[in-house]
C-alpha cells in the first residue's frame, strides 16, 4: 500500500493468536491497534502485514495474494477463509478483527498449522488420472459436456478451509477423508478420461472414508472458491449405494 497521510487513517483493533513452541508459553491472543486507510477497503492479509510491520515475529503463510494459491486459510472472526480475498468490510465486526489458525489441525506457530494430515488424506484418493485410453501422441478426446463436469471440482486450491471447518474431520482426521480430498476423489471419478472409477469407489467403501459426512454443510459455506464438496460427497454416496444394491 502507498504511504498515506495520518488524517486519512483510522484505527482497527486486531487480536491475533500467538504461539511459539520454543518459548514454552501457552498460546495467547495478542491485541494490537493498527492504522488502516479510512476510505479504502483493504484485505485481511493487508491488515496482517501491517500488524507484522509493528511486530515482525507474527507468523503466517502467504504467497499469491489473490486467492489462488491456498496459503493463507485462517479463521477470521470465527469463520474460515482466505486472508487475501476477505475484505475488512466483510470480516470486521464492531471494529474488531480476531485471527486464529484453522481449527482442528496441530498449530506449528501463530497462524500456521501443520497440514500433513490434510495432504495425506489428499494423497490417499490417488489424485491423478488413471487411464488406458489410446492417444497416438495426441490428446485424449473429451466432449465439451464431459469437460463441463469437471467445473466446480478441479478448481480446488487445497487451502483446507473446508476440512478444518468440518466436525467429522476434527474427530477423525485420520479416517474420514474430509471434504477437500473427497471433492478431488469425485473430480477424478467424473473425468471421462479416467478408467478407475470402480477401483476408486472400492477405496471409499468403508464406514469412515465417506460416510462420516453428515451433511453439516460447513464446508460449503466456507469454501473461498465457491465449490460444493457436500454435493460431491453426496454423489459418491449415491454411487456407492447404487453399487451395493
Amino acid at each position: 500500500m502507498n504511504s498515506i497521510a495520518a488524517e486519512q487513517l483510522k484505527t482497527l483493533k486486531v487480536s491475533i493468536y500467538r504461539y511459539d513452541p520454543d518459548i514454552g508459553k501457552k498460546p495467547y491472543m495478542q491485541s494490537m491497534d493498527i492504522d488502516i486507510p479510512k476510505d479504502k477497503d483493504i484485505m485481511v492479509l493487508d491488515a496482517l502485514q501491517l500488524a507484522k510491520e509493528i511486530d515482525p515475529t507474527i507468523s503466517f503463510r502467504r504467497s499469491c495474494r489473490e486467492g489462488v494459491c491456498g496459503s493463507d486459510g485462517m479463521n477470521i472472526n470465527g469463520k474460515n477463509g482466505l486472508g487475501c480475498i476477505t475484505p475488512l468490510s466483510e470480516a470486521v465486526r464492531g471494529n474488531k478483527l480476531e485471527l486464529r489458525p484453522l481449527p482442528g489441525l496441530p498449530v506449528v506457530k501463530d497462524l500456521i498449522v501443520d497440514m500433513t494430515q490434510f495432504v495425506d488424506q489428499y494423497k490417499k484418493i490417488q489424485p491423478y488420472l488413471i487411464t488406458d485410453k489410446k492417444t497416438d501422441g495426441k490428446e485424449i478426446p473429451q466432449t465439451v459436456e464431459d469437460r463441463d463436469k469437471l467445473d466446480g471440482l478441479y478448481e480446488c486450491i487445497m487451502c483446507g478451509c473446508c476440512s478444518t471447518a468440518c466436525p467429522s474431520f476434527w474427530w477423525n482426521p485420520d479416517k474420514f477423508l474430509g471434504p477437500a480430498a473427497l471433492l478431488q476423489a469425485y473430480r477424478f471419478i467424473s473425468d471421462s478420461r479416467d478408467v478407475a472409477t470402480e477401483e476408486r469407489l472400492d477405496q471409499l467403501e468403508d464406514a469412515f472414508s465417506v460416510f462420516r459426512c453428515h451433511g453439516i454443510m460447513n464446508c460449503v459455506s466456507v469454501c473461498p472458491k465457491g465449490l460444493n464438496p457436500n454435493k460431491a460427497i453426496n454423489e459418491i454416496k449415491k454411487m456407492l449405494i447404487k453399487r451395493a444394491i
Binding site: 503463510r61 504467497s63 499469491c64 489473490e66 489462488v68 494459491c69 491456498g70 496459503s71 497440514m115 495432504v119 486450491i157 487445497m158
Partner: peptide, 11 residues
C-alpha cells in the same frame, strides 16, 4: 519454500 501448489505458476 512453499508447498508446491502455492508456487506462482498457480496464478
Amino acid at each position: 519454500k512453499v508447498f508446491p501448489t502455492r508456487s506462482h505458476t498457480v496464478s
